[in-house]
Simulated assay, not measured.
Amino acid sequence: MSNKTKDLDSVYQRIWEAIVAHKLLPGTRLKEEELSETFGLSRGFVRKLLLQLSYHKLVNLVPNSGAFVAEPSPEEARDIFQARRLIEAELVRELASKCTMREKKLLQEHLEQEHQAIERGEQSLRIRLSGEFHLLIGKLANKPVLTSFLHEIIPRSSLIVALYQGTDLNQHSHSGSSCSEHNTLLEAIATHQVELAVTLMINHLNEIEAQLQLEPITDKVANLKNIFADV
């Protein structure tokens, strides 16, 4: 991996973490010049970064206006989770019908990373790993078409969770509950309990959606230099 690619991934992660921490709110404008000065990057590099964020639906690029943190609506959130239920029910059904010891081990290793992120209080990493757990199920199910759809909507789903799950004192327990549900789901997959695995997956996604606090946020002015002052 080149240094430029590493730099791009590093800055991408910084912006993602700022969104998760509610420092960059939905609709916040990301000015190319300010990002360039803040991170010491060329304008061309910043444009490439914004394109990557846009590809993952984390940023909206508006012609003649600029780049803005995506503003998923309540309707979009409901549509995203409905799509996930339909797609992931089939993926988990497929994997649970044929899960091998190797596949079980891969899922267990991933869940251990998720657990460690929770213990360290790394919320942005926990959300990312949670989404990647679902993508791993899709990959192991070996259903390329369905998994390609999942790759498109998981980042949008993670953004919705990051923005609207809230920052209350019960956040750690919510994270732990999600990880526990993943463990229970893995057990059903590994023991080939197909219908139970499907039910657990749907219930898990329902629970995540139920925790969303889809309230309007109006403060969309951000000082990028202050937000990323420790870069």
Rank of each mutant, 00 (worst) to 15 (best):
G121S: 11
C179Y: 03
L136M: 15
L163W: 05
T191L: 11
G66A: 08
A117N: 06
F68N: 04
E181P: 01
H151D: 10
I137Y: 02
K143R: 15
V69H: 00
Q113N: 14
R128P: 01
E114W: 03
K143V: 07
A190I: 05
T147H: 07
E187V: 06
T191P: 00
H204Y: 11
V198T: 07
V161R: 08
L163R: 04
A190Q: 06
F81W: 06
E90T: 00
E112H: 13
E152L: 14
A89Q: 09
I154F: 03
A162C: 12
R78Q: 14
N203D: 12
S73K: 11
L129D: 02
A117G: 08
K139V: 11
P63R: 11
R156A: 15
Q165R: 14
L169V: 12
S73M: 09
E132P: 04
H134G: 08
A67H: 01
E152F: 07
E90V: 00
Q108G: 10
A67W: 01
Q113R: 14
V194Y: 05
A83T: 09
S175R: 04
G66M: 06
V62G: 09
V69W: 00
R84F: 05
S157D: 09
Q193E: 15
L185E: 03
T184F: 08
P72K: 07
D79S: 13
T147A: 06
G66H: 06
N170V: 10
A83H: 08
A188F: 01
T147P: 00
A117W: 02
P74K: 10
L135D: 09
G121M: 10
E75W: 12
R78S: 12
G176K: 05
E109C: 08
L205M: 11
S158V: 04
N170R: 15
